[in-house]
Design a protein around this nucleic acid. Structure first.
Lengths: 153, 153
DNA sequence: TTACGTGCAAATAATTTGCAGTCCC
DNA sequence: GGGACTGCAAATTATTTGCACGTAA
């Protein structure tokens, strides 16, 4: 049920199992979410074009441009439902807006200063050494690395 | 002009150069900020008690409890002025609130899931291996590592 | 004195919620 | 048909701004 499946060429689109929209509906159902028109449309934008980092505001604008009438409140609700279902990950970013990442696999980020934008780090793996022991009764859930970039010169 | 100087024992408080408040005023002046009553009071809370991670809301409440009448707007303004002056660092945290770190030296963070709280990682140094090359025309400004902790069991 | 700061309240931005109506299963 | 979902608007929360007044240098 990897979301990359949604990017398969369309040559098999006539068979249901190869139809991207059908796959997306299955993905939603598998997450316990009804594949409503709005969720399918937003899911299509989120998972149909590779890895993305979106804010509610940005996704809403994009939906309107694509002639998909959906309310901002529904975008917020949908993003949080997708996050709860594990289809999205909320990313830590300084500032007041919340961003979501469509890539939920283990990976890290570049943060472009000035543009306040994030890009996945292409490295297959990135190791952190000298990691300290977590405090008593705690365990490490995940390690996030953010490499802040600025324009040279 | 390390802020840790503010934590020196008070035995030299009778000499101006050893007076913590006087040191703080110098620190503010050195940053190009007038040492007004409000800035000195907030600076005292921020830099006089070790490394801290604060939000505007939280610092404002703390100030009121300490009988320091200061408006929330001034707390916001002061935090941003301190940040511009390099006395504070804004930290990346998921969620809608902005947090500031009084420790501006090179270090990393534990993030306590559920409590939405950050703690400095005590490790003197933490190495990241296999760091990828930054894109053309970009350079690495900083590397932030966030170790997410959850309660065991 | 006088430019820089501050307080207040109003403006803006970001997000959540309540509820009547709509749509999937 | 019925409960899950959506849209709208109003409520909350987070932050910024404008302006009259105060204060450090």
């Amino acid at each position: 049920m990897d979301h990359v499946d949604l990017l398969k060429p369309a040559d098999s689109a006539t068979r249901q199992s190869g139809c991207p929209v059908h796959q997306l509906k299955g993905k939603l159902r598998g997450a316990g979410l009804r594949p409503t028109r709005q969720r399918v449309a937003l899911g299509w934008m989120l998972f149909g074009r590779g890895d993305r980092h979106v804010s509610a505001e940005g996704l809403h604008e994009e939906a309107l441009k694509a002639r998909v009438p959906v309310s901002l409140a529904t975008v917020y609700n949908t993003l949080h439902q997708f996050k709860e279902a594990g289809l999205l990950r909320q990313v830590a970013m300084e500032g007041s807006k919340t961003y979501f990442d469509t890539n939920v696999s283990d990976h890290h980020h570049f943060f472009i200063e000035g543009e306040d934008r994030m890009v996945d780090i292409p490295a297959p793996r990135l190791d952190v050494a000298n990691l300290p022991e977590p405090p008593e009764g705690m365990e490490i859930a995940r390690v996030d690395v953010i490499v802040r970039l600025r324009k040279k010169g």
